[in-house]
């Protein structure tokens, strides 16, 4: 437990307008504890930008730039390159941040460029699985069968009909020195990966699973539990990779059926209505099992 004084000294401070139970704000806090004050951050348009910088206040005690939706990685590339050419890069961390839409959809081109040029930047994708800031529209990282406002479920549809994009593997395909996947459910794992990223020169990609109370439609008390269930079911494998090789995975301690994870969330409510929904849950179980196999999670 932090003292009041320690809380005040945090680099991502309390007082922002994130929802109660917001797993993204928890993750940012944990990440900033490791990065320290010699950090420059860019942030794509999204929840984080909106809830942490409401006029006239900011939760950031570091230089922080709200870029646009699509250019967080490009702006960070510029920050890093300029620091480098001015001889000031040593000892300064440059991070670029975005949500799943800002990273894997509209921001993917800029991110690919940042990877390919191997800028010394840590890119952090806070993955809550949809465009939550604009009202829960689907993104390329929305999970299979999730209800969103642009992938509605109903008589004709079970919601989002495509699996989640394998974004970390897209990062690995760029042969960048470090790719990691972590989760708001595992603070130690998250901080360990940030710490490691800081020791590596070149482009780094970190994707963090951050449950979203209003978007996933669950009780705020379940944020950490859901993040953990995502890992323990095999739906959200946590791993680290160097270049194109996976070097470590977080093992599942006790395998949980996907149903346990799905049933707590309103966005999957339609799967629990009838037999057809049951068959969809089977499909999701199969995806989890395939992940377990593919990443060697057990």
């Amino acid at each position: 437990m932090l003292t009041k004084e320690e809380t005040r000294n945090e680099l991502f401070t309390m007082g922002h307008t994130g929802c109660s139970g917001c797993a993204q704000s928890m993750s940012v806090k944990l990440i900033m504890e490791i990065l320290g004050k010699n950090t420059i951050a860019t942030s794509a348009t999204g929840c984080l930008e909106v809830f942490s910088t409401r006029w006239p206040e900011s939760s950031w005690k570091i230089p922080w730039i709200h870029s646009l939706f699509e250019n967080s990685a490009a702006v960070a590339s510029g920050v890093e390159a300029a620091l480098k050419y001015m001889g000031k890069k040593d000892g300064i961390n440059v991070i670029a941040q975005g949500g799943d839409g800002g990273t894997a959809d509209i921001g993917l081109q800029a991110l690919s460029g940042m990877f390919e040029r191997n800028h010394d930047v840590l890119y952090i994708c806070y993955d809550n699985g949809a465009y939550m800031n604009t009202g829960y529209q689907r993104s390329g990282l929305t999970p299979f069968d999730a209800y969103t406002t642009t992938s509605p479920s109903g008589k004709e549809s079970f919601g989002n009909n495509r699996p989640k994009k394998y974004m970390p593997e897209i990062a690995m395909a760029h042969r960048i020195p470090y790719t990691a996947v972590s989760s708001a459910g595992y603070p130690m794992d998250l901080q360990k990966k940030v710490k490691k990223a800081m020791t590596i020169k070149g482009a780094k990609y970190l994707q963090v699973d951050v449950p979203c109370v209003p978007g996933w439609k669950y009780e705020p008390r379940y944020s950490v539990k859901l993040a953990q269930l995502a890992v323990q079911t095999g739906l959200y494998p946590l791993f680290e990779a160097e270049y194109d090789k996976i070097i470590s995975v977080k093992k599942i301690s006790k395998k949980v059926p996907v149903e346990e994870y799905l049933k707590l969330q309103g966005r999957f409510k339609h799967l629990f209505k009838d037999e057809a929904g049951r068959a969809e849950i089977e499909k999701i179980q199969k995806m989890a099992d395939e992940n377990i196999e593919r990443y060697g999670l057990m």
Binding site: E70, G101, D105, I106, L108, Y131, T134, G135, Q137, R138, G140, T149, T150, S151, P152, G154, E156, S157
Partner: peptide, 29 residues
């Protein structure tokens, strides 16, 4: 692509058009 304050146009059409056998695409940008 979702953007405030126009997202509802897309949300309404995401349920209307597919029901009529017509195309709704949410694009990457």
């Amino acid at each position: 692509y979702p953007i405030t304050p126009s997202s509802e146009v897309s949300e309404f059409l995401s349920s209307r058009l597919p029901k009529m056998g017509k195309a709704f695409l949410q694009m990457e940008d």
